[in-house]
Every structure is written in structure tokens, then in C-alpha cells.
């Protein structure tokens, strides 16, 4: 019921336009992964791995099924065509990916930060961004007997 497809950045928009015509009318999820420190799981040999990967899950309602589309995005120019024209529901999801991973979407009507303050620096879900942990000081507690 669940399939995975690998699509190159050049075919990205046309691929989704075709799938939409086919009946995949519902965008379930759009997210991205930063593969800085690990290998891409399940990547076929003919696809060249890049640092970022945009993962889109689309559904069709007439024959319930899920299609996962994985697209490699190079780190030098992390830009992907926006899916807002095909799936208006992608708007918030693409903004989230832009905010947390710093991948831009060409043609997005309002590409601004969505979760973090507008003046935030950096993209926290990238692997080279620290957790931002504050060191906790533990103090010895005086025992009461």
C-alpha cells in the first residue's frame, strides 16, 4: 500500500503534476532530512546522494494508498520548486521546512519563518546546529536527619 519513489530535482514539479492528474489529490506530509552524518537508507545505486532530502507523502482517496517521494537536494543551492500551486496545503509545511532546515521553495507565496521568531539565526534541525542545551549545575543537597 505504501510505495517509495525517487525523483530528481529537475522532474520534481512535472512528476507531482502527473501524479495529481492520476488521482493523488491529497498531500499528506512534506518534510526534509539533513543527511550530513549518515548515509541515506534505501537509496538505489543510480541516485546520487546529496546532503538534503525532501520527503513528500501523497495519498489518493479513490484507491486508498500512500506514495512517498524522495528528492535529493544539494547543499550548495538548497532550493526546491514549491508545490503550493498543485497542493495549496503545502504552504505551512514548506514554511516549516524552510524555517527549521533552511531549504528554500521557489514560487512560494510567503516564504518566512513560521515557528521561530523572525529574527532567529540558523536552522535548528540541521545537523551542524547544536541542541542549544544549557548546562545544568547539580548541587549537593544537605541531608536532613
Amino acid at each position: 500500500m505504501s510505495e517509495v519513489a525517487f525523483v530528481s530535482l529537475e522532474e520534481y514539479t512535472s512528476y507531482f503534476a502527473e501524479r495529481r492528474e492520476e488521482g493523488y489529490t491529497f498531500l499528506a506530509d512534506l518534510t526534509a532530512v539533513d543527511y550530513l552524518e549518515a548515509g541515506h537508507p534505501g537509496l538505489p545505486a543510480e541516485v546520487r546522494p546529496e546532503r538534503f532530502e525532501v520527503v513528500v507523502n501523497i495519498r489518493r482517496f479513490d484507491q486508498p494508498s500512500l506514495l512517498r517521494v524522495r528528492t535529493q537536494v544539494p547543499a550548495e543551492s538548497p532550493w526546491v520548486p514549491s508545490l503550493v500551486d498543485l497542493y495549496p496545503g503545502a504552504e505551512a509545511m514548506e514554511r516549516e521546512v524552510y524555517d527549521l532546515l533552511g531549504i528554500g521553495f521557489e514560487g512560494h507565496p510567503d516564504l518566512t519563518r513560521i515557528l521561530l521568531p523572525e529574527d532567529w539565526e540558523g536552522h535548528p534541525l540541521r545537523k551542524d546546529y547544536g541542541l542549544g542545551r544549557v548546562p545544568v549545575q547539580f548541587k549537593e543537597v544537605r541531608r536532613h536527619r
Binding site: 505504501s2 499528506a28 506530509d29 518534510t31 532530512v33 539533513d34 552524518e37 549518515a38 548515509g39 537508507p41 534505501g42 520527503v55 507523502n57 500512500l66 512517498r68 534541525l125
Partner: peptide, 30 residues
């Protein structure tokens, strides 16, 4: 084991999905 998956359930508010990537360690990669 390394892999990636998307699981979805119907929560009271709608489709609740979890996309998980493992690199073979004891913590999720994403």
C-alpha cells in the same frame, strides 16, 4: 536497523503521521 518509514493513524484531530529515519544506532536520526 537503518531505514525510513512513514506511519499514520487517525488521531481525534485527523491524520497523525510519524516519519522516522534510523541510521542503525540507538537514537532516531530524524
Amino acid at each position: 536497523p537503518p531505514g525510513e518509514t512513514y506511519q499514520a493513524i487517525e488521531s481525534p484531530r485527523g491524520e497523525l503521521g510519524c516519519y522516522m529515519v534510523s541510521d542503525g544506532s540507538a537514537k532516531p536520526y530524524r
